[in-house]
Design a binder for these strands. Sequence first.
DNA 1: AAAAATTATGATGCTTAAATCATAAAACTG
DNA 2: CAGTTTTATGATTTAAGCATCATAATTTTT
Lengths: 87, 87
Amino acid sequence: MKRLVRTKKDLGNSIREIRLERDMTQKELANLSGIWQETISKIETGTANPRMGTISLLLSALDLEFVLTPRSKSSLKDWEKIFTNGL
Amino acid sequence: MKRLVRTKKDLGNSIREIRLERDMTQKELANLSGIWQETISKIETGTANPRMGTISLLLSALDLEFVLTPRSKSSLKDWEKIFTNGL
DNA sequence: AAAAATTATGATGCTTAAATCATAAAACTG
DNA sequence: CAGTTTTATGATTTAAGCATCATAATTTTT
């Protein structure tokens, strides 16, 4: 399943999903990545606005990477997302 | 051509490449994204460690997105990259 | 080469990410 | 339900991002 990441909310949701798929706790991911559990919590909930360096550590710990691609068309138009919270 | 982004250096290189492919100046990208030209310069050169919010604005301006995927195997082993600067 | 445009760099100020500690809240487990 | 684990939150401190202005260095154009 393809995980698109455009916003910090997307990022947090994806990281949480993947972490859980692997039966990992935030503490375990924290140990692996060198990022604090508290920080991971804030990133996953979308509270934080993490730096690229922090994101890199998490990607590395989860053995993930970004692939930069042209945006796929969304089923929702941008103006519709204003109402559905999809953006 | 697939652009892998693992580090802030990767990010800067990719953004610059794509910007140039589109014959865009940093100033133009700045106007489009709302990020200052000076900041874009620092991001492209890998000097800065940008926040996800900043990255999002650039992705949006360039109509790009990240796809989160398992890491592809590199042709170089990690220890080799230490010598080739590939990391 | 001179002029113009583009990019890089350096400083300041404000804001905030992240480390760190403490603890509260929620979700499991026996 | 009590106890444990996991996750969330809040405060404090330090470091750094980003806006902003100024200007230097580089590249492009004429």
